[in-house]
């Protein structure tokens, strides 16, 4: 079973990101689960969400304490929140930052760290600093847990009510992040 923990701030679409991963994994014929760490949502407050992917039905409901994969949507959380709690030397970390990999101070092996400037892509592709979908392109590439096609389909399923333009922009942003 793959266990993914998402870190971000209220208003950054952390919960939506976890749901998109679960929907994409389901599209790839896996069993999947996604849920938020049920906080009182306040803009800017640190928020966690969780996703699990497996080839058999997922029964456990506990939070993700030993993640295989960490997605950090906001690098300013480092030092405020113990984002790598429960991580081991195999845990992959995907982090949004404009900094160079060497400047990211996290207690994980350098080879497991994937840095993407998702904010830059989001500003250029979406015109807003909403990085939750962008970073999933990097997630799909780094982990191979979901296919790019299933992720695109998940975007369509989740955002179709919000209009074609938004769907297209997000798909374009994800594809760009995937190909980096």
């Amino acid at each position: 079973m793959h266990q993914i923990r998402f870190h971000g701030r209220g208003g950054q679409g952390v919960v939506t990101a976890a749901e998109l991963v679960a929907i994409a994994a389901f599209n790839d014929k896996h069993f999947a689960q996604a849920f938020p760490s049920f906080g009182v949502e306040r803009t800017g407050a640190p928020i966690e969400a969780f996703a699990r992917i497996d080839d058999k039905p997922i029964r456990t409901r506990e939070h993700v304490y030993e993640p295989n994969i960490l997605i950090v949507q906001d690098s300013s959380l480092i030092g405020t929140v113990d984002v790598t709690a429960g991580a081991d030397d195999k845990t992959l970390v995907i982090i949004n930052s404009s900094k160079d990999k060497k400047e990211i101070k996290l207690p994980v092996p350098s080879k497991n760290l994937f840095v993407i400037d998702a904010t830059k892509i989001a500003m250029e592709e979406l015109g807003r600093n909403i990085v939750n979908t962008v970073i999933l392109g990097a997630f799909a590439k780094a982990t191979g847990l979901v296919t790019l096609n299933s992720l695109k389909k998940a975007i369509e399923q989740k955002f179709s009510a919000k209009g074609k333009s938004l769907v297209d922009k997000n798909i374009s942003a994800i594809t760009r992040a995937y190909n980096m």
Binding site: A22, F31, Q33, A34, F35
Partner: peptide, 10 residues
Amino acid sequence: GFVLTHTYED
């Protein structure tokens, strides 16, 4: 509440 109401699963 939350544990089922807000969770995505198949």
